[in-house]
Write a protein that binds this DNA or RNA. Sequence first.
DNA 1: AGCCCATGTGAAGAGCTCTTACATCACTTC
DNA 2: GAAGTGATGTAAGAGCTCTTCACATGGGCT
Lengths: 214, 214
Amino acid sequence: MGWSGNKRGEGGGDSRRGYHHGNLREALIEAALDLIKAKGPAGFTFAETARSAGVSPAAPYRHFRDRDALMADVARQGFERFEQFLSTAWNDARPDAFTALGNIGKAYLAFARTEPAYYSAMFEAGIPLEDHPELRQAGERAFAIVRKAAEALSADLPGKPPALMMALHIWALAHGIASLFARGDSGRRSLPMSPEDLLEAAVLIYLQGLGHKG
Amino acid sequence: MGWSGNKRGEGGGDSRRGYHHGNLREALIEAALDLIKAKGPAGFTFAETARSAGVSPAAPYRHFRDRDALMADVARQGFERFEQFLSTAWNDARPDAFTALGNIGKAYLAFARTEPAYYSAMFEAGIPLEDHPELRQAGERAFAIVRKAAEALSADLPGKPPALMMALHIWALAHGIASLFARGDSGRRSLPMSPEDLLEAAVLIYLQGLGHKG
DNA sequence: AGCCCATGTGAAGAGCTCTTACATCACTTC
DNA sequence: GAAGTGATGTAAGAGCTCTTCACATGGGCT
C-alpha cells in the first residue's frame, strides 16, 4: 500500500534519469487522466497510455493486470478525492447545516466540472462494481458524507424524515444536474441559469417540502 | 428514406439468399443494440457489429461513416422512442396533472430499465452534440414532454413557479435516480426502496415545497 | 436489353493486446 | 563495500481486430 514515495532521490523536474521510471504507477494514472479528459473514457488504450508515459507498451503490465484494472484504480482515486472534496465542503456542519449542505452541492458540481476525467471514470466508465469491491467501498465512503449531512438536517425537520432517503434524493439531484448540464466546458444543453443555481433552488424547494423554514 | 421494405420478394425467414442484404442499415442498428446491452456502450466495434449482422467487416461503411455515426443514429432512434414513451405516460394530463406527472416518472425509470441499450447510447456514449444536430433536436423534443407537464402543474401552484425550472429539476432527479440506481439488473447500489418509490417520494416532496396540497 | 450506381466482398496494412526471454537497477546481506 | 536477489523495464513476436482499398454483383431506370 505504501506507494506514495518516489524512490529516486529527487533533485529536479528531470523525469527519467535511469533505466527505471521510478514512479510509473502514478505516471500511468496521470497519463490515463489526460487521455480520458481529451478523448473520453472509451478513448484510450493500454498501449497509448504507456506511450504517453514514455515507456514501452509492456511496462504497464507490471503495475496493472489490464486496462480495466487501470481504469478502476483511476476511479477509486477519484472517489477518494471526491470524498475529501465533499468533506471539506461540509466542514462539520459549519456555519450551519443548511449552508453546509449548499456547499456540498456546489462542491459536487465543481468536482464534475473541474475534474471531468475523474468524474467520467467514476460514473461513466461502466466498471462492474462486483469485480472491484474496493471501488464500491470508496464510493460508499463518499456517499457517507452526504448521508451525514442529511442526518444533521433531518434532526431539525418536523417528523425527522429518513436521512437515508434524503441523502439519496440529494445525491440523485446533484448527479443528474452534473451529468446533464455541468459536463466539460461545451455544456450539453443551454440553461436559463447556472447549474449551481439550479441545484441550489432544487434543494431549497425540496427542504421546504420537508418543512424547512425558509 | 423509403427504407422499410425488403427488396427481395420471397417469403420465409431465410435471412440472406442473395448478394445484397436488403435491409442492412436497420439490421446493423439492431445488432448494435444487442451488443450495447451485452457489453456496454464502449464494448462493441464496427467490425463486430458487421459480424453479428452476418456481413463482411467492410459492409457497414456503406451506411455509416464510422462507429460514432452508428451510435448517434441509435441514440436518435432512442430519443424518438423515449419521446413516445413519455408522451403516452403523460396522456394529456389525464386523469389529472399530478397523477400524470407520476406516470412520466415511472415511464422514465421503466425506459432506463427495459431499454438499457438505448439509454446508454443516449446519455452515456459521450456523443458530441455539436456534431449531431438532429440528435440534439430529438433530445429536446423528448424534454418538451416534461416541460409541458411542468407547465400544467405550475398553473395550479401558488405564485406559478417557472415551468422550465421545474422541468429541469424533475428531469435531473429522474435522470440521477435512473443513472445511479435503475441500471441493468445488477443494480449498482442497494436501496431501502425501489427506484420508482424513491422518485415518487422526491417529486411529492418537491411539489409540496412549491405549495402543492398533498 | 443495357447502363449505372448503390451495395457487399476479399485482401492487405496498421495498430492493439498479451506473452516470453532478457536487461538493468535498488536494496539487502555478508 | 561487493555479490546476490527481486522488482522493474525492454525487445520481439504471435494472434487478433479495425479500417481502407480495388473489385464484384445485381436491382432499377431509360
